[in-house]
Simulated assay, not measured.
Amino acid sequence: MITPGTAYNCFSKFIFDGDTLTLDFRGADLRVRLRWIDTPEAQRSGINSTDPRILKHWEWAQKAKTALMELVAGKPIILIPIEKDQYDRWVCDCYLEKISVATNIQILQCKSGMGVSFVPFNRFAYNIRELAVLKGIITETASANRKKLGLWSDPDLILPNEFKKLTLS
């Protein structure tokens, strides 16, 4: 049984992409989506393109996935589930070893330039921890952008939310 807002100890088991992973939760698989960030979309089976911008986006997706793998491999993760999304994943805040802005996985992905902020507009009652995470995500995304780190180094970058609007076949 998972209770939203409660901290749980887990370990990473499988990384789907730069913002989605499976955790070992008490011996069971738990699919998790990192809250308030977005990373480039991976190429889906049967979808191809010759457009260099799309090919580059898929390359960035692989780099974001690799960055998340390197970040969490073999390390204890503290999971704070918030809610389930439309794909039946738990949307969560995740931390390495302890709950701190410095160890928040979403912030670390944005700081490295492998994620972008995905700011919520539908909720207005944040606790102190959530405000610190949200501020950290926005701050580190802006900093990585200014420094041209990671995906921000690509002048023709298609942001994840823009990419999702494209019709690919």
Rank of each mutant, 00 (worst) to 15 (best):
L79E: 08
T66M: 08
H57Y: 05
L134C: 04
K65P: 05
N161R: 03
P155N: 10
V119Y: 03
I82R: 05
N104A: 15
C94E: 08
I15G: 08
I99Y: 02
A73V: 09
K13P: 11
F121A: 06
S153P: 06
P160M: 04
T139K: 06
T139I: 09
V119W: 02
D24Y: 00
V133W: 00
V116Q: 01
R26E: 15
L131N: 10
E41L: 04
I47S: 04
C10I: 07
G136S: 08
I137N: 00
G27D: 12
K147S: 13
I37W: 00
P81Y: 03
Q86N: 15
C92K: 03
G150M: 12
D51F: 01
G18V: 14
S45Q: 05
Q109N: 10
I107L: 01
F11K: 14
G27P: 11
R129N: 14
L134E: 05
A61W: 08
L149S: 13
D88P: 11
D85H: 05
C94R: 00
F124D: 10
R33F: 14
E140V: 12
S112F: 09
A132G: 15
G113I: 04
I37Q: 01
P52D: 11
A7D: 07
D88M: 15
M114C: 09
S49L: 02
V101Y: 01
K135E: 15
E162V: 00
E162N: 00
E97G: 05
